[in-house]
Design a protein around this nucleic acid. Structure first.
Lengths: 148, 148
DNA sequence: TTGTTTATGTAATATCATAACAAGTCAAGT
DNA sequence: ACTTGACTTGTTATGATATTACATAAACAA
């Protein structure tokens, strides 16, 4: 949160109460939240009850590098490295739905190469992997945990 | 289509009329289609009129490597290289919405490296880039085409 | 044929997202 | 203090995407 505040101050962004609270909600969750989940929490605290309230706050956070959108989950997650020039690659566990943010710079470089070969210029990329996180991998191998 | 049929025969998959037609629809479109667009065309030809008809056919195609899902567009596109062991990376033009399928193997390799560093095992990956295709890049630079 | 699996179709509903508009906030200039 | 203009928040309403649950039918194996 402090990282976020510093960043906001430097960039002269307006981290208003809704936006700030939305970010805190994402940070506290330790997982990706759907827009309606965020909305529900915001509404409980006296903010607006309608979808645009959440979508706008989340859009602001994403635009300014404070959060990410995980398209595969239709969800949002707080950025773990705000301010750092980084390309995130998301590792989504199919068992526990946890989301880890991996270093995506080399991935992005490879992607740029592939794009250049086709004359395509990449502006933004979303790199999302589905698999097993270390914890769930251990469990699955050991006990044969069912997953659906 | 012939590639698809060969593949289907080898794998003993059931390319039923709906599924076959769904694939043809994607192939004929030369662009990514939403599930409801596919559904509309299927319904016109006497198939079911409800969403699951399209979603199931598309899911079958995706599962069996005959089509891909483009999450950023909430859309589906026919696979351009069915049967080849390939990891697709999608290049989505933000102006004309065209989708190109680039070689994603090196991208995937970089992604696997990043995942291994975190103890995460990748099973599937979706790699989607947004930018400008060669055509739209030329137009934008030359004439200053507005894009929204 | 009988039983089993797989596929198709429908109805109903759940989930995710945006457009359009009204009202409030805030800072800059006068 | 007042006005202006950009931005923010809130609401209503609707649009777009996707799934669950259940019934019927086709394909297949024994």
């Amino acid at each position: 949160m402090s990282q976020a505040e510093t960043l906001v101050a430097v960039q002269r962004l307006r981290l208003t109460p809704v936006r700030r609270r939305a970010l805190e909600i994402l940070l506290e969750a330790h997982r990706a939240l759907g827009a309606y989940e965020v909305l529900e929490r915001l509404a409980e605290e006296g903010f607006g009850k309608q979808p645009p309230v959440a979508y706008r706050a989340l859009e602001f956070l994403v635009e300014n590098g404070l959060a990410h959108r995980i398209r595969r989950l239709n969800a949002f997650t707080a950025c773990m490295h705000p301010g750092e020039a980084h390309v995130p690659a998301f590792l989504i566990c199919r068992v526990c739905d946890s989301v880890a943010e991996a270093a995506g710079a080399p991935v992005r470089a490879a992607l740029d190469d592939a794009a250049i070969a086709l004359g395509f210029s990449v502006e933004r990329a979303s790199i999302e992997a589905v698999g097993l996180c270390p914890q769930c991998r251990a469990h699955t191998q050991a006990g044969g945990v069912a997953h659906g």
